[in-house]
Design a protein around this nucleic acid. Structure first.
Length: 555
RNA sequence: GCCCCCAUAGCUCAGGGGAUAGAGCACCGGCCUCCGGAGCCGGGUGCGCAGGUUCGAAUCCUGCUGGGGGCACCA
């Protein structure tokens, strides 16, 4: 019996109490009740605080309400006991049998276990990373790559139709500075003060020269144009390649330059003007973003006639909303962009959208580096920027992605380079992957013995020890964890869940022999435990899949 | 000055109003005749401060302290 099924049973009990005239609820019976796993074993398999929640509208003490539910619940199939405790908690024990059937259900569901139809039919556009093509993907961007892709996978698991999107800022001043920096390095000069530094600038510059040998004999403006075009193209390739190596495949790489070249920017501004959302002042065209809660109005067209960055955003946002009629535009940004929220919401509202419904901007905190216990300061100028590829090269894709996704986005994380570089069991990803390898190994050994997991008609009551019960309850949690991770946009919950579940499995393994010992005859218990192993392996594999981390058969 | 995030064990971090606040690392001590010891078992210290809401607060609200990041006709 899963928590959701228990919730249904409790609702049924409440309905029965009302029908019998034992209970009156002014707001009616809730559609579902909150069921949680108690921290203490003595409090049963599951507990609910619904009686306390209903105290007001029932006009009766919580313990009395809990008694009414308990009496009816105790008669429900699959429930071994229901007792009232403390101020009005209802503690429930599930029949071992009702719990054990889950193992067969999970194996039958396979890859789909954990998913749901919660967001079926919802089209989501999820933009993340979107780093400028003026350098390699940095460690900070790697966090959004890991978190964004995992979030996309989790949303897809609950039915959403997700488009992963990357916005290349390949237009504007920073691109000019990049081109100038390349030109300078190609000539053996220092890049400008506000230019780009680091070895990769030299590399890109020499690759451009190799491809276009006569570039250095061109006039400055023409040479700069060649370096801009070729340099940016090389960076595009580099960015795409490192993301692919990281296991992140974007559906759309959108180029900022395209909305400027196509006239989409002007169309977007015209539209805003027609909607009465702009005005002219000091020779510039402004968006009345303060009407929608922004700190200040934002210029769309500068007094020199050129379009601003936010004008490109306007066109891009409009494109996203119209291209496939996305229900929701989600954007993952670093904390240094949090000031961006106000103007973007105002932009959305200016087009007549509801920013609370159509737009969602997620802010994640930064990644710091620590070495020898001391913070390591990255400097773009000195060229000491740690890249995603550096991280992957040091710890591997699995550990890199896992380490970046296992923390709450709200928390700044300190990655200890030495620790991750050591690649020892300090890294929790090994704990989870090891559990999967161990599970796979048991299944391999069973196959060698000609032993198959029990079928759907097995006796679930065989899985009755405390460790088996703990493991089954952990497996039963998975769909809820995925649902919560999706709803709260918190992929790290999946990682933490996997660590807990791996621990439950390791404990089960330590106490419960799965395969026959020596020449012992296989029994139904062996087959039942093997089924539990198969179910556990499935859950661990599904969970790792949501994080974009491999589930190894062997390590 | 204004805005956002954070503050929980020696360290890195979990903890969606619930009962006795958890995990990993580190430290000490146990467990391999057979399914992977990269594992398991035992040992202990903590919610920055002050108010408020609530039957109940690490969790929600306010103020303060400390840390991080932002507040361009840059992108």
């Amino acid at each position: 019996m899963t928590p959701d099924q228990l919730s249904d049973a409790i609702v049924a009990a409440l309905n029965a109490a009302v029908t019998d005239g034992d209970l009156t609820l002014s707001d009616g019976v809730p559609a579902s009740v909150r069921v949680e796993r108690p921290k203490v074993k003595e409090h049963g398999d599951y507990a609910t605080n619904v009686a306390m929640q209903l105290t007001k509208q029932a006009g009766r003490p919580p313990r009395e309400i809990a008694e009414l539910i308990a009496a009816r619940l105790a008669k429900t199939d699959g429930i071994a006991a229901a007792e009232v405790a403390g101020p009005g908690f209802l503690n429930v024990r599930i029949d071992a049998g009702a719990q054990g059937v889950l193992a067969a259900e999970i194996v039958a569901a396979g890859d789909s276990y954990g998913g749901s139809d919660q967001l079926r039919g919802v089209k989501v556009n999820l933009e993340f990373v979107s780093a400028n093509p003026t350098g390699p993907v940095t460690l900070a961007s790697a966090r959004w790559a890991a978190v964004g892709d995992s979030l996309a996978r989790i949303l897809e698991a609950i039915g959403a139709d997700v488009t992963r999107e990357y916005y290349f800022n390949d237009h504007g001043a920073q691109i000019d500075r990049f081109a100038l920096s390349l030109l300078a390095r190609a000539r053996g000069q220092e890049p400008p003060q506000d230019g780009y530094f680091g070895d990769y600038v030299d590399e890109v510059a020499s690759r451009v020269v190799a491809a276009e040998p006569d570039v250095l004999s061109l006039p400055d403006a023409d040479a700069q144009e060649v370096f801009r075009r070729e340099g940016v193209a090389l960076m595009f390739d580099e960015v795409k390649r490192s993301l692919r190596d990281f296991g992140v495949d974007f559906d759309v790489y959108f180029h900022e330059a395209s909305v400027h070249e196509s006239g989409a920017v002007q169309q977007a501004i015209d539209r805003l003007t027609k909607l009465g959302q702009t005005y002219e002042k000091d020779g510039a065209v402004w968006l009345k973003s303060t009407d929608y809660g922004d700190d200040k109005d934002r210029p769309l067209i500068r007094s020199n006639g050129t379009a601003t960055y936010i004008a490109g955003d306007a066109a891009y946002y409009l494109d996203k909303r119209q291209r496939r009629e996305f229900d929701r535009v989600m954007i993952l940004l670093g904390a240094d962009h949090h000031g961006y929220i106000g103007r973007y919401r105002a932009l959305s509202a200016s087009f007549g959208d509801d920013p609370d419904k159509h737009l969602e901007i997620l802010i994640g905190q930064m990644v710091n580096l620590v070495r020898d216990g001391k913070p390591l300061r990255m400097s773009k100028r000195a060229g000491t920027v740690l890249t995603m590829q550096d991280l992957v090269g040091t710890v591997g894709v699995d550990a890199a992605r896992y380490s970046l996704v296992r923390y709450s986005m709200d928390a700044t994380i300190d990655l200890d380079l030495d620790l991750w570089a050591r690649q020892t069991q300090d890294n929790p990803v090994f704990y989870v992957q090891y559990a999967h390898a161990r599970l796979a190994s048991i299944l391999r050994n069973a196959a060698d013995l000609g032993l198959a997991p029990a079928g759907a008609d097995f006796d679930p009551g065989l899985l009755s020890t405390a460790r088996e019960g703990d493991l089954l309850r952990a497996l039963a949690e998975f769909p809820r964890v995925v649902g919560h991770a999706a709803e709260l946009r918190e992929p790290h919950r999946v990682a933490r869940y996997l660590e807990d579940t791996a621990a439950s499995f390791h404990k089960f393994y330590d106490e419960c022999r799965v395969l026959p010992l020596g020449d012992e005859e296989p029994t139904p218990l062996h087959a039942a435990r093997l089924l539990l192993v198969a179910a556990t392996r499935q859950v661990v594999a599904n969970g790792l899949g949501l994080l974009g981390v491999t589930a190894p058969e062997r390590m």
